[in-house]
Design a binder for these strands. Sequence first.
DNA 1: GTTGCGGTTCAAGACCTCTTGAACTAGATA
DNA 2: TATCTAGTTCAAGAGGTCTTGAACCGCAAC
Lengths: 194, 194
Amino acid sequence: MKGYQREARDDDDAGPGTLQPWEALVVDAVGNVIDFWKFKRNQGRVWAVLYLRGKAMSATEIQEALGLSKGGVSMLVRELEQWNVVVRVRAPRDDVWRYAAETDLMKMVGHVITEREHQLVKSVLEDLEGALDDAKEAGADAAVIARLRRMKTLADLVDRALRAFVQTARFDVGNAFEVLADPDKVERPERRRR
Amino acid sequence: MKGYQREARDDDDAGPGTLQPWEALVVDAVGNVIDFWKFKRNQGRVWAVLYLRGKAMSATEIQEALGLSKGGVSMLVRELEQWNVVVRVRAPRDDVWRYAAETDLMKMVGHVITEREHQLVKSVLEDLEGALDDAKEAGADAAVIARLRRMKTLADLVDRALRAFVQTARFDVGNAFEVLADPDKVERPERRRR
DNA sequence: GTTGCGGTTCAAGACCTCTTGAACTAGATA
DNA sequence: TATCTAGTTCAAGAGGTCTTGAACCGCAAC
């Protein structure tokens, strides 16, 4: 439960990076949220600079902006790529990789939910099923069995809710999931794909 | 990102506790979920035994069941009490405290959301507002300002979504949030309170 | 070839959180 | 009063995760 509300306004003082103070504020805020979401704080910070600056940045630029180590940036961007949260681009005449922030929230959140949360729920369901069988076999109390069933029901509900969310949110009411996108770059037709 | 999918079926082997193997399975599954939710794994395990056993247990019983230390149990139950997830009871003729699992999901989840998530969103909103002001003052690029605004919009949306969830889920469709409750103990009228 | 640069990998260590266990309080018993 | 048990607190240590920095690779320029 590390930092969902760090000592308020005291981490914007120094920091080794070269960010503007107000940039640092945003970047760290995103870092907190992301850290809370069980990703690495610095993953959030990297995405945040990329989004905020609005242009693809090289690893070195990221490194300097955030005051991270070379190796660290390399790892962070790879992880972010794997989560579909950042894309790696190499312009024709360019000889370094540059990274740009994904802005389609559903692309990001959806991926996380299906890859990670769903995974968790699935494994819990398996455990509960296993336990249910064993408990019956061991002649456990009927009330206990009933509670086990209820837990399983709950896990099922959550599982379905997650699926439903991911399935429907793509084509969902309003453009809530495109808030972050640059207005004149939103590709409407894209949404019908898949 | 410790344990949302630990090495599958290998933590049910030993464990110092006196739980039945199938109990351990359930307890650890809940522990994983809760750990993932940024609470302590053992908080989840304590709630799980209490729920599974279906009766109020003393600290000593919990300690033995889960193989925890005396001091640890004391801290864990206190924290769980604070989150409205466990209640401390002392029966008339009883000379020890006993703890029972809360089963009203909304009571638990709602509390967490209002106390913790909402808190996070609020602090992010403040940071973004602060950054927005500073950025304007520092004469930042218009596109950057626009992106900052979009982030703030998103934070606002999330804030409202959370509020809405907590507000409506109490009186919500179906009894999805009472899955865990003992059927003949659900107090319907209670739901209209507040 | 060799020098320089972008990029990756990984062992070592920094950093943090959680748990333990001993010391302590309070109340009950004798 | 002395002694026992339930319960709390907290410093020290265990156990994790994250970051660093050095070694390394590949490629291009010289």
